[in-house]
């Protein structure tokens, strides 16, 4: 069953310098129970897609297209109905957990408030529930630590707290926007495993937004590769890693510095990521693409389905065997 469907989504921002085209005609279909990585470099539009889904765009932003969650259209939904879905069915966590918390309030207060307010639980029951979830997220001595303030936790521990908080209302969809980017290497893996665990235990659908293709390999089933606010390629992680169809995906995978290889030089992609003030007529990757041909600058490649589970938007896709 498709839990979340995004059709032809565009996000624009009106600024003093003109219109910023952050997301340009994105389609996504996310099945219930899947774990999907949305991968792209900075400014590729990853976060704005998620903010559009959540109805959290900045005031100068506008979304067009369609976002349906379990059959309900979210774009243009009135605030009250949207709030009900947001507070009970979709939760989001961010790169910097500190920004999502009130620094002057104990964790206990911030966690139980959600339950007493939205679910009408007694304070006592709410506290027990919150401690239980912290415990499940492997926060040591949860019953004691729930009485502490955010600054008394390390970054990794705070991310666990946030995941626990996100799970309070048992959402069906958890969106994690760069949840490990601010964390140290040895803690990053812990959080990724925890997210996998959440999916297994609570059946939560997980969208992982990340610029780090490396962490996708071990932790997600499906992936969507964005560039310049458009989907370049999507499909099962194992198949894309084995044989990417899109030249950008190939270049991105090649650019990752690897410990298990002895390359003399890193393989870089020439040039810079696309600025969002320009909306190229052709393929957004054309200026940096090793396979570019004349037509790529003129005509935008349409999304094709080389296989039932794969999508690629390129005039000269790489042949795959997988």
């Amino acid at each position: 069953m498709t839990l979340l469907r995004v059709r032809d989504l565009s996000v624009t921002f009106e600024t003093g310098d003109g219109t910023v085209n952050a997301v340009n005609g994105v389609d996504l279909a996310i099945g219930a129970g899947q774990s999907v990585a949305v991968v792209g470099e900075s400014g590729s539009g990853k976060s704005q897609i998620m903010f559009a889904i959540m109805g959290l765009l900045a005031r100068n932003g506008a979304a067009a297209g369609s976002v349906t969650f379990d059959g309900t259209e979210l774009l243009g939904l009135d605030e009250g109905a949207l709030n009900r879905i947001r507070s009970s069915q979709i939760a989001m966590i961010f790169q910097n957990p500190m920004t999502a918390l009130n620094p002057y309030m104990r964790i206990s207060h911030q966690m139980t408030e959600v339950l007493t307010l939205h679910k009408g639980m007694s304070r006592r029951a709410a506290l027990a529930e919150a401690i239980g979830l912290l415990d499940a997220m492997e926060v040591p001595e949860a019953a004691t630590r729930i009485g502490m303030y955010p600054h008394e936790f390390s970054g990794g521990m705070l991310q666990r707290v946030l995941i626990a908080m996100a799970l309070l209302c048992r959402p069906r969809l958890l969106i994690a926007d760069e949840p490990t980017t601010a964390l140290d290497a040895t803690v990053r893996g812990q959080i990724m495993r925890l997210l996998a665990d959440v999916r297994a235990r609570f059946g939560t659908t997980v969208i992982l937004v990340t610029h780090d293709v490396g962490i996708v390999a071990g932790h997600c089933d499906e992936m969507v590769v964005l560039y310049g606010g458009r989907v370049m390629e999507s499909g099962p992680v194992a198949r894309i890693f084995a044989a990417p169809h899109h030249p950008y995906t190939r270049s991105l995978l090649d650019a990752v510095p690897r410990l298990d290889r002895d390359d003399e030089r890193l393989r870089s992609i020439p040039g810079d990521p696309l600025g969002t003030n320009l909306l190229p007529a052709g393929c957004p990757f054309a200026a940096r693409c090793p396979r570019v041909e004349e037509r790529c600058h003129r005509e935008r490649p349409a999304s094709e389905r080389p296989a039932p589970d794969r999508v690629v938007a390129c005039h000269r896709p790489l042949e795959g065997v997988a």
Binding site: T186, D212, G214, A217, G218, V237, F241, R258, L259, D260
Partner: peptide, 12 residues
């Protein structure tokens, strides 16, 4: 070294 992700699902 063990924590460094390898961009290869088979290895991971």
């Amino acid at each position: 070294i063990a924590a460094a992700p390898v961009p290869d699902p088979a290895v991971e």
